[in-house]
């Protein structure tokens, strides 16, 4: 019994330590600057004011950053589906020469972290005059080896009879991919979608490389623009902005914990 009390206490303490940054962020986001810079420590703000949040939206273009995040994530996700679902379907449910070779390439591609390809891709985009565009932010990610791999695993578990039946029913292969195959692997598709959106919403590296226009900043980049401009004096609104930037991921996670964990855990297969 005492063992159990110690265990519970230790776990709660650990969880509290994990949450400290979040709690402090929330606390600061409601405080005015006088309170922040005062020397007394108080977790609860003197009064609950949304001023910092309003400032965050008016002083910097936070809405723009969020919109960019949505555009980039959605663009990447749509293309990743368009490319990887048909490929994974063909790799499992069709017989053609070179199938093994292509799957071998997919597995090899899984081992390559994105950073490794950054310099040549930057060069190519610069040559094509595409730096500082949405295209530059989306194109490098359109073909996800991880997506192909994940969908391939899911499709391989389906009965081939189903696809033969669909062929006899008069569906084209393209129709089979989108009307039969994809709806049958919805859990895998959701997991992949969550993984992809979280990864690209949170990514700073590529945005830092191919954009210099603040109008193209995705949320993490936007936060840095904000911080660097205010040079540390406007902490309250900055914290309000961070709350807003992480909110979509946190809310999504809390609402669909199981799917989120599945998606992010599956992402570990990626190199």
């Amino acid at each position: 019994m005492t063992g159990r009390i110690i265990l519970v206490t230790a776990l709660i303490l650990g969880a509290f330590l994990m949450l400290v940054p979040f709690l402090w962020m929330l606390s600061l986001s409601f405080k005015d600057s006088a309170e922040i810079f005062s020397s007394t420590l108080d977790f609860f703000p003197a009064r609950l004011s949304l001023d910092n949040y309003i400032t965050a939206f008016t002083k910097v273009d936070l809405g723009r950053f969020l919109l960019n995040g949505v555009i980039v994530c959605a663009g990447i996700l749509v293309f990743q589906f368009l490319f990887s679902v048909p490929c994974a379907y063909a790799l499992t449910q069709r017989r053609f020469r070179g199938r093994q070779v292509i799957f071998g390439l997919v597995l090899a591609g899984l081992l390559v972290p994105f950073h490794v390809t950054a310099i040549p891709l930057f060069l190519a985009l610069a040559k094509l005059n595409l730096l500082d565009t949405y295209t530059a932010l989306i194109v490098p990610f359109v073909s996800s080896m991880f997506g192909i791999f994940l969908f391939r695993q899911a499709f391989a578990a389906l009965s081939p009879d189903l696809f033969d039946a669909a062929r006899l029913d008069g569906l084209s292969e393209t129709a089979i991919v989108w009307r039969i195959a994809l709806p049958l692997v919805l859990p895998a598709a959701t997991a992949f979608g969550i993984f992809s959106v979280v990864a690209h919403w949170n990514d700073l590296f590529w945005n830092l490389i191919v954009t210099s226009d603040p109008n193209l900043a995705t949320p993490p980049r936007g936060i840095l623009y904000f911080r660097d401009r205010e040079s540390g004096s406007d902490i309250g609104p900055l914290m309000a902005a961070t709350v807003i930037v992480i909110a979509p991921m946190i809310v999504g996670f809390l609402m669909a914990q199981r799917r989120f964990i599945q998606g992010l855990a599956a992402g570990g297969l990626k190199g």
């Binding site: 776990l11 709660i12 650990g14 969880a15 509290f16 994990m18 949450l19 400290v20 940054p21 979040f22 402090w24 962020m25 600061l28 979280v198 919403w201 949170n202 700073l204 949320p219 993490p220 980049r221 936060i223 840095l224 911080r227 902490i235 900055l238 914290m239 961070t242 930037v245 992480i246 991921m249 946190i250 999504g252 996670f253 809390l254 914990q257 989120f260 964990i261 992010l264």
Partner: peptide, 26 residues
């Protein structure tokens, strides 16, 4: 237990750059 699990997992889902800015404050 699942509530605690969510607390431990929260930093994984949160945008690391944003949280780094918070760490800077801490």
């Amino acid at each position: 237990a699942s509530g605690l699990r969510a607390a431990y997992f929260l930093p994984v889902a949160a945008t690391l750059v944003a949280m780094a800015v918070v760490w800077q404050m801490l």
